[in-house]
Design a protein around this nucleic acid. Structure first.
Lengths: 240, 240
DNA sequence: ATAAACAAGATTTTCGAAAATTTTGTTTAC
DNA sequence: GTAAACAAAATTTTCGAAAATCTTGTTTAT
């Protein structure tokens, strides 16, 4: 754990980031806060007091509130009128609900991508898989790996698989669900639960093979298994 | 078209409305604006100038911006940083994407509800169906029917079907997608395209029968057909 | 002791002015 | 005539203070 790199999610559509490169303060705060919540820097259940956020993000009330309202739509924060915002809590039930939804949405998206995807899609999958594998192996060999960078690679891979699905909605739902479930994985990692026992790289390879072979059902099944396995491993971390 | 009744969506979870009955100005504006967009009072593509909204909703910049940011998460408005907000445009592609997503999400939710639902669930479906049918028949008999009330009944019915699915996420996605597709239906109605040719009530009845018979596949198929038919009829309204 | 009533403090929400940025229109240079 | 440069107007975004509401602790009455 090192480096300074910012959020690995800066490109996510859910974020409603602009087409032009321009960014408002609210955009930046939104992005940073999202990453802070996903990685657990702002822990589940923490009350988000405006006065504190003001210092932390060097922003006034308006951009902060703007960011919080967006985050609410992605289930990363919850709010009660007149009683402010809280980092959305984590629970086993919520996790399983998120995983099930992810399997539904990404499963469908993957099948559509397999039907629609072209050469560029295949190429990007291979590129993303390679980049991820390298980082993962380096990490399991005990080297120091930049968490943010690893997370960026991880997301790039999962995004690449379904990128050619042809549906903006499915992609956006997948992005949202990715972040929701990632909170659990990163929390587990942080509490040094070894999720590394499995050979994730091999699972990824099998998935890529099925995808490139255009085997819809096999690919969807592998994806489902992949998520369920991860889910099972993470259940141990959660008390409720 | 008469009455004054407010938004029929006041209860929708997506809206992140509070547990307590309290409401902030932002909550109210959000709710009203959402309904204004869905029913086409604020037409697709319309730029949402803060100064105008200020008068229309009697609110300052803060609650307006808050509402707009939430609406953005539901794809009812789009924004470009520093260039403000616009009512999300309507297009055939978008409509079909929304319908497909709805079939995926509600299909799954319906199947789960059929597996989990109890007596109260069944009862609520019958109640909602009855209330909707009455209003629908009254309308087709040429009587004057309150649009907002009809819309409330319509949503109640579709919500009742999947209410017992056991997944907060699926319910929320369904709510969002409901509003997105409803924009097309209401726009079509407004341009007096006759969507009334079909006997929607009969379709509803068949669906209810399959659901109560706990026939997952038949119910999902009927739901799919129902949405696809409606979609086809609405395509005519759209130029692109 | 318990509960209602009240006051003080903390926090959220709202407002309107100020700052920053985009848009529109005009002028100038080539 | 066309395009760059600039100025004016319109608009969004941000700020900080004011208003509204919730929370906590104390007092008072029963």
């Amino acid at each position: 754990m090192s480096q300074v790199s910012p959020s690995p999610y800066a490109d996510i559509a859910v974020g409603i980031t602009p087409d032009t490169g321009k960014r408002t303060l609210a955009d930046t705060v939104y992005d940073r806060m999202r990453w802070d919540i996903v990685r657990g820097e702002l822990p589940p259940g923490m009350p988000l007091r405006l006065e504190q956020l003001k210092d932390r993000y060097s922003a006034g009330f308006s951009p902060l509130r703007e960011a919080l309202n967006r985050l609410q739509g992605e289930r990363l924060v919850v709010s009660q009128s007149l009683r402010g915002f809280v980092v959305a809590p984590l629970s086993r039930d919520e996790m399983n609900d998120a995983i099930d939804a992810r399997i539904l949405v990404e499963g469908e998206a993957l099948q559509r991508a397999i039907r629609n995807g072209g050469d560029a899609w295949e190429a990007e999958i291979l590129a993303a898989a390679h980049e991820l594998t390298k980082s993962l192996r380096r990490a399991s060999d005990g080297f120091d790996v930049d968490m943010t960078d690893l997370e960026r690679r991880h997301r790039r891979f999962h995004h690449a698989l379904i990128a050619a699905c042809g549906s903006t909605r499915l992609l956006r739902m997948a992005d949202t669900l990715y972040m929701e479930t990632e909170r659990y994985r990163l929390t587990a990692l942080h509490r040094s639960v070894d999720l590394g026992e499995r050979d994730v790289c091999t699972e990824h390879e099998a998935l890529v093979r099925a995808v490139l072979a255009r085997d819809e059902d096999a690919a969807a099944a592998l994806l489902t298994e992949h998520y369920r396995d991860t889910g099972r491993q993470m259940e141990s971390v959660l008390t409720a």
